Amino acid sequence: MRHSLLEPFVLLASLLVTTVSAACPNCATSQVVKASVLGEGFWSYLVMLVVPFLLIGALSAILYRIGLPSPGMTSARARSGAEHQT
């Protein structure tokens, strides 16, 4: 059975990822990074990022729920309404 070059590469990549993820969460560098990411503007930036998606999703859900008539359907309704009025 032939071994490809992909297997050692995957092993090396997984070892690098586990080494990085095992870093100390309470060291001075991590405290600085946490403070800069979760700083004073964190919530305002998060809201500005999420609100457009929520608005588009809510509008899409409302339009899906009420349904928009197709162009052919509105003309058929108009014709049937005109016939009933005469």
Rank of each mutant, 00 (worst) to 15 (best):
P25Q: 09
S36K: 14
P71E: 08
V10R: 12
S75C: 02
A61C: 07
Y45S: 05
T29Y: 08
S21F: 13
S80N: 11
G41C: 01
R79M: 14
P8R: 15
A22M: 11
S4T: 14
P8Q: 10
V47P: 02
G39H: 01
G67T: 00
R77P: 01
L46H: 12
A35V: 08
V50K: 10
R79L: 10
A13K: 15
V50G: 03
V47Q: 14
M73Y: 02
S30Q: 07
V47A: 00
P71W: 10
F9S: 15
R65S: 06
A58R: 07
E7P: 01
A35F: 05
G72W: 04
P69F: 02
T18W: 09
A23V: 06
P25G: 04
L38C: 09
P52E: 02
V37S: 05
P8C: 06
P52V: 11
T74C: 00
R2W: 11
R79E: 12
P25M: 05
T86E: 04
T19V: 05
K34L: 03
F53G: 15
Y45G: 11
F9Q: 15
V20R: 01
H84E: 06
L15Q: 06
S14N: 12
S21H: 04
V33C: 13
L16I: 07
L59N: 06
A23N: 12
A61M: 00
Q85G: 00
S75I: 06
E7D: 09
L12K: 14
I66D: 00
K34Q: 04
A82Y: 03
V33N: 05
A76V: 11
S30P: 01
P25R: 09
A22P: 01
H84Y: 11
L59D: 03
T29W: 02
S60Y: 15
G81Q: 04
S36D: 12
V50S: 04
V51Q: 15
C24A: 01
G41N: 15
A78V: 12
M48N: 11
S36L: 11
M73W: 05
A76H: 07
L63F: 13
L38N: 07
T29V: 13
G41T: 15
V17L: 15
G57N: 13
I62P: 02
R77E: 08
L38H: 12
F9L: 13
V37D: 05
H84D: 06
S4G: 14
L59C: 10
S30R: 04
S4P: 03
V10L: 10
L68C: 10
E7C: 03
A22G: 09
L11G: 02
V10K: 15
R65L: 09
F42A: 07
P8I: 02
L59A: 14
S70L: 03
R65Y: 12
L54F: 13
L54I: 10
R2H: 15
W43C: 03
L11M: 08
S80Q: 14
L12A: 15
P25V: 01
A76K: 07
G67P: 04
H3I: 11
E7R: 12
S70N: 00
L54V: 08
T29R: 01
L6D: 11
V51W: 13
S14D: 07
P25D: 00
G57I: 01
L11Y: 13
V17Q: 08
V10D: 08
A82H: 14
G67I: 00
